[in-house]
Every structure is written in C-alpha cells, then in structure tokens.
Design a protein around this nucleic acid. Structure first.
Length: 714
RNA sequence: GGCGCGGUAGCUCAGCUGGUUAGAGCGUAGGAUUCAUAAUCCUAAGGUCGGGAGUUCAAGCCUCCCCCGCGCUACCA
C-alpha cells in the first residue's frame, strides 16, 4: 500500500444534526488525521477530505421541532463542525458539505451514469402517503405503536424505546407527523441497486483482494472485525437496495429521468459521493486535477470510520463505484469500534458524552491532552473506555512526567551549561546508553538506534496501529530520560565536560526527533517544541524523510552552535478539581436527561372506551405452576397457569426479566379470553398482565394477598 | 437462537504464520539520583492466558463443547 503514488483518505461525514463528541474523534477522525499527517511528513501525495452530511428526514424533523429551516440547522452544525475539527487539530485538506451545488451536481451525474448503464432496477412498492400534506412520508415522519414493545411513539424505522428496527408498515395505528392524519399506502416507484448481483464479486474482492484478475488489496491487512462483519452480511445474502426515496430535503433525482418528480437520492448515493465532490472542490481551489485521486490504480483509497459504517463502505459504496466502472475501490477500511464513557455507552439522546466543543472551552489549551488519551485508548480492535480519572493519570504520568519533563530538563541544562547553544563535541568521546547498557557507546552508532525506532514507528502507522505508534513515541522520550540518568551530566560537568558535551548534544537530537514525530499525534505540543528548539514548523512536507536520512547516516539533526530558546512546560498537571468538575457535569446531565426522559415517556392516554368495551375483557386471577424457557428464543417463557377451573399454556415475552424458577408459584393476573395465538409453534392462550416503567422494567400485577385462582377482576 | 468481534498480571492493554522460564504502561514495594512540573532511573513482587476436552514432540495462539461482554439479527400477540 505504501508503494502507491498517491493517497486518497476520507473520514466519515458527520451528520449535521448534533455536535461532535469524543467517540467520533476516537472512532474515525483522529486515526485518519495521524495517518494523513504521517504520510505528508513522509513526503507522500495525499488528500484528506471530509464534510457535513446535510440531507435526510432527521434534519427536517429537527428543524421543525426547533422552529428553524433545514438550511439554518445545517448551517449551524456545518460551522460548528468546522470550528471543532480545526480547534482539535484535524488537518482536513477540505471540509466540504453535501448541500453545495457542486455536490448536488456530482451526485446527480453519478446517478445518471448508473441509470444510463442500466444498473438500476425500477421497482414499485407501497409507501405511506399523507393525503393532507400531499406527499409520501419518510420513515421518520411516521409514528405509531411499536408492535414489539407497545411504545406508542415509535418511528417508522426504529422504536427508540426497545431499539427494534422497524418498517413503517409494522407500526400499529400509524400517524403522519406532518398533519397528524392517518397515512394511506400508495404505490410509488424507486430505483434499486441490485446488490444481490454484486454478491459474488464483492465476496471475492473482500476476501482475496482480487477483482477481475487484478490484485487490489491484501485482506490480511484488514481488521478482523471488518472482514467479519462483511462476511456476516455476504453470507446472509445481499438484497437490492433502494437508491432513491420520497423525501423533500436532499439531492433531486435528475429531472430528465421519467418519474423523477419528488424523488431524492437516498443516503447511499448521497453521502459517500460527498467524498468525491469534496475532492473536486479541493482540486478547483488548488488548481489541481481531482480525477487521479479517484480513478488511477496508483492511488490508495482509504476510508476511516466507526464500525456502524462498515457495511456501507465495504459493500454498498464499492458496489456503486464498481457499477460506475471508472472508479477505484478502497485498499483498506480501517474501521474502529466504539468508545464508551465512564462505564456507559456514549449517547447523544441521553446526553452521555464529552462534547468536543465544550471540552475545548472548559479545558483551553489542552487539545493534545485529549488527543493523547483518545489515541492511547483508541478502540482499534474492540470497544474501549474513556474515564476522566484515566485522563488525569495519563496526562500527569506520561505527558507531564515523562515527555514534558524530559524536554524541560534538556533545555534547562543546555541553557545552564552552554548559554542555550548546542554544544560541539568529540566523536571519539564515549557515553552510556540504554540501547546497550553493558558497554560504552558513541554518538554516530547510537543515533542509529533512533533511526530504528522511527522505522518501527512508520511500520505501526502504516498498519493502522496507532496505539502502538503512540507508545513508541513515548519510548523515545523514555530513551532520552535514560540517557540523562545513566550519564548524570549534573555530576560530571565539572570533571568531564567533554563527555557531558556528547551526552547533551545527543539529548538535544532526541528532543528534535520528538518535536518532529509528535506532530501527527500532538500537533500543538509539537509546535511548541519546534519553537523552543528554533526549528522550522511550516507545512508537513517530507520532514520525516529528512531526519530519518540524517539519522541513518549517523548525523545530527540540530547542528552544533544552533541557538535554542528558554525552557517551557509543554504540559501541566490535571488537578483533582478539574476531574471532579467534569465527572459532576456528566452525572448532572445524566440525571437531568433521565428526568426529561421519564416525563417524556408517560404514554398518552388511549381514546375513551365504553363500559361495555371493558366488560368484554375477562380478567382472572391465576397462579404460575410451571415455567420454562422456550428453546431457541431469547425472550420467551412458556408458562403453565392455574386458573382454578383449568390450567393453560401462556407464552410470555419476559425471559429477559425473570428466570423460570423464580416465578413458579407466583400469583398473576391473566387476560383470559384473548384469542389464542401461536408463538414459535406453541399456542398461547391468554396474556399475563404486567406493569412497565420508563426504563422497561417489568412487574407482575397481582392481588396483594394470597387469593384463589380463577376469580374475576372487574 | 443464528452470525461477527472480544474475554491475557489489581487497572488499561501487547502477544506475528503454534516453538525455550507469557510481555508493556499505570499502580504497589525496595533502592539510586537531584538538572527537571515531589519529576527521572534501576530492581522486585504479581498471571490456572474465561472454563473443559482434543489435535500435536510442542497451544494464549489450531479443533470441539460450555460460560461471559459488545454489535447485528430472529422470537417477545
């Protein structure tokens, strides 16, 4: 991969309906940023693109809720994204947006191309239509009762209470959120991408890297969980996917296509094309040609994203690119897993998150401290965890005690002994080094040890192993601390100044190496080091190649006589108070949002019924006399209930809440005249009445004293 | 239930295609040192590698069964 002429690097487009949190950074943006900065410093031709994903029903709904236009919503978040990413040091070459004219045109062209090639299947389906608002309804515009948990405000695509994935037609009592009316099913037609037809080549391409005889990537370099998830989908069989929707906020289906009225491109053909339009805009801004970056086989296309996006970028987008025919496919999709926060999943809706823009305000000047922690704990192979206590410990022990302290003591000693000038020394002079503790070493041979470390660092970055590469950076600092400790210049400066001169010169070369290699990880501290050392800190452009070349030759990076500046503290300690404030803030937001959630989830009253309606229900007391788990079902218990006059079988979905042994002998309340229904082959006659709280916890409803079975309830 | 990814020292994690006494950082204990933000350096203690069986001369790494965590998915009238 590294032998490719140029690199096209993308980071997942953030959706413009909420701010960026640490999970986003750890999942995609930091990994991409390190990789790209490193490539630039290796002198590679690389373009790094991203942008706001600004279409779809969720944005129009949010706009409506807040009394704003969709345009106002996306403008707000686009600006916010730009500021956040810039402030935390994500070095996009361009941060574009899908609402731009250029993107609309690019996406339409792409659609037109596939259409003309006959790649689409046009299919009719029935979708809900709002007769008052005169439009088809996006899944998110339809609410109704969840068929699975009974929650009355489930969306057409998902129930936010039980988390099930739904189709709008699954909803009981569907309502349009536009007009409140009951939507009707109406025929509509859409263009589908026949992924089922791509299945064979996709499977081959993913697992062997081969496509049409060409070797495109090495699957051994792909992460196991990425391959695993792809194969899980492939083995389940791919199905055609609609590439268009009846939406009102998005990219129009090209008007020259019959039946395009009111149709918009669906996210599959919108967001990822955003990478391409971003590249076009970048090219136009810099008077460059965008096409080689997407169409030349000598380009390595790499997508950085979180695991929620794997299937999208490994199967659907490659399917689209290949259907078009002119585009290259990604050589790797190094998806990360998720980062948890203080023991819980990060959740936007429950406000359980560290928002990056808030962090930047509350912890000013501590960009690198956050970057360091997120990289150190990057969820590369499995979910990981961010804690404020861990943040404090890592900053104080690793950044302050190890790195900043090393830098500081070298600069202090240089100023003290040599008035801030890098000392000249005798190449024949020996000293101690931890690279070979048993014998004395010399400048030109030991400096190659630094080269070896950088070369190892390079290997880690190229295999997307950012945790390991960060660790290696810190080992360089430790190597420096060891050098000082083994030679103790403060003890021998009077007696052996020649030896101190080599040691200090070498120590200064290590600080120079650190100034350069920290840049992809800790760009802000890197800038401070450059300044103190009097090194040029301009563009990232081949400087790693430079210093590696020198080190390999046993040469110094900073020449003798070079003047450096005054000592500074690169990092300062995180206090207990700072940590406590952050933890308290999290806890507060949690309890606050729980209260809101509780208030929100009081299920609205159902329409009034008559006494007769009630009287038709036969509700009885009963007692569970037998309970066992249903085979091959996670949530079902098969209960035998004594109703006094008979025993009957009732299947109940409570296995997650109660174990069979615990509920035998339990008094229950049974809706006894409910029509029987078969569940997984077992006939269930009746239903156990349960109370449920906002968190989904279940409780039996029963007489509060021992009471005979079979008695009526009225 | 199915599929995928994980389960390694108190904590966070490394362990390449199976190969000698299983590693790192933090924490803990002892020692050295004072240039440095009470920082640094050295040493030590500490692990039935989720559990069980198997393949092999040899398994943390391979096979089978089971348990636990996470994700997707199915059943939950």
């Amino acid at each position: 991969m590294f032998d490719k002429k140029r690199f096209m690097v993308t980071a997942a487009l953030p959706y413009a309906n909420g701010p960026i949190h640490i999970g986003h950074l750890a999942g995609a943006y930091l990994a991409a940023d390190i990789f790209v900065r490193f490539l630039r410093m290796m002198g590679k031709d690389v373009v790094f693109v991203c942008g706001s994903d600004e279409h779809g029903a969720a944005i129009t709904i949010k706009a409506k809720k807040e009394g704003l236009t969709p345009r106002e919503i996306i403008d707000k978040y686009h600006v916010m994204f730009e500021n956040t990413f810039k402030s935390i040091g994500i070095s996009f070459d361009i941060f574009h947006r899908t609402s731009s004219e250029l993107h609309h045109q690019t996406a339409k062209d792409f659609f037109m191309n596939l259409y003309n090639k006959g790649q689409f299947e046009e299919r009719e389906s029935e979708q809900y239509y709002d007769e008052e608002a005169h439009q088809f309804l996006a899944d998110r515009y339809i609410t109704g009762t969840c068929p699975k948990c009974g929650f009355e405000n489930a969306y057409g695509d998902q129930c936010e209470k039980c988390g099930s994935t739904l189709n709008p037609t699954d909803l009981i009592n569907p309502r349009s959120t536009l007009s409140g009316s009951t939507p009707v099913l109406r025929k509509t037609s859409h263009w589908y991408l026949p992924l089922d037809k791509y299945q064979v080549w996709l499977k081959e391409w993913i697992n062997t890297g081969k496509l049409d005889g060409a070797e495109l990537h090495d699957p051994a370099t792909w992460k196991p969980h990425v391959l695993g998830q792809c194969n899980s989908w492939l083995d389940g069989g791919l199905e055609p996917r609609a590439m268009t929707r009846d939406l009102d906020w998005g990219v129009d289906v090209p008007s020259e296509i019959p039946g395009s009225d009111g149709k918009k491109l669906y996210v599959w053909l919108d967001a990822p094309i955003g990478y391409i339009s971003a590249t076009k805009q970048w090219a136009a801004d810099h008077n460059r040609d965008w096409e080689p970056y997407w169409k030349d086989n000598d380009t390595a296309l790499i997508h950085f994203l979180g695991k929620d996006n794997i299937v999208f970028h490994c199967l659907i987008f490659p399917g689209i690119l290949h259907a078009h025919g002119e585009y290259i496919l990604p050589v790797n999709v190094p998806a990360n897993q998720f980062m948890n926060l203080e023991g819980n999943k990060i959740s936007t809706s429950r406000n359980w998150a560290v928002w990056v823009h808030e962090y930047l305000e509350e912890m000013p000047g501590k960009e690198d401290e956050l970057r360091y922690n997120l990289i150190k704990n990057m969820p590369e192979q499995k979910d990981s965890e961010f804690t404020w206590k861990g943040y404090q410990e890592v900053v104080n022990t690793e950044l302050v005690n190890n790195l900043a302290n090393f830098f500081n003591r070298v600069v202090v000693l240089t100023n003290k002994y040599y008035g801030g000038e890098i000392p000249d020394f005798d190449m024949e002079e020996s000293f101690f080094s931890s690279s070979d503790p048993d014998m004395d070493t010399y400048f030109d041979s030991d400096i190659i040890h630094l080269y070896d470390m950088l070369s190892e660092l390079h290997g880690h970055v190229m295999s997307f192993d950012f945790r390991a590469s960060l660790k290696l950076v810190m080992e360089i600092s430790t190597f420096g601390n060891q050098l000082l400790q083994l030679n103790e210049p403060w003890k021998i400066q009077k007696s052996e100044p020649e030896r101190v001169a080599v040691v200090m010169n070498f120590a200064l070369q290590i600080t120079a190496v650190l100034a350069v290699v920290t840049r992809p990880f800790l760009p802000f501290a890197s800038a401070r080091m450059h300044e103190v050392l009097g090194m040029d800190f301009s563009e990232e452009n081949g400087e790693l190649v430079d210093i590696m070349g020198k080190l390999a030759e046993g040469e110094a990076i900073l020449p003798a006589g070079h003047k450096i500046g005054e000592p500074i503290h690169l990092f300062t300690r995180i206090t207990d108070e700072q940590v406590e404030i952050q933890i308290a803030k999290l806890e507060n937001s949690k309890s606050a949002s729980t209260e809101v959630a509780l208030a929100d989830t009081f299920v609205p009253l159902k329409p009034e019924i008559s006494y007769d309606d009630f009287a038709r229900m036969d509700i009885r007391t009963g007692k569970i006399i037998k309970a066992e788990k249903m085979e091959k079902a996670d949530k079902l218990l098969v209960l035998t209930v004594d109703l006094g006059f008979e025993e009957r079988t009732i299947v109940s979905g409570i296995a997650k809440h109660f174990s069979p042994d615990d509920i035998i002998g339990k008094q229950v309340t049974v809706l006894a005249n409910l029509a029987p229904r078969k569940l997984r082959g077992v006939e269930s006659k009746g239903m156990i009445l349960m109370a449920e709280n906002a968190e989904g916890r279940l409780m039996f409803i029963n007489p509060d004293e021992d009471f005979p079975a079979g008695m009526t309830i009225q």
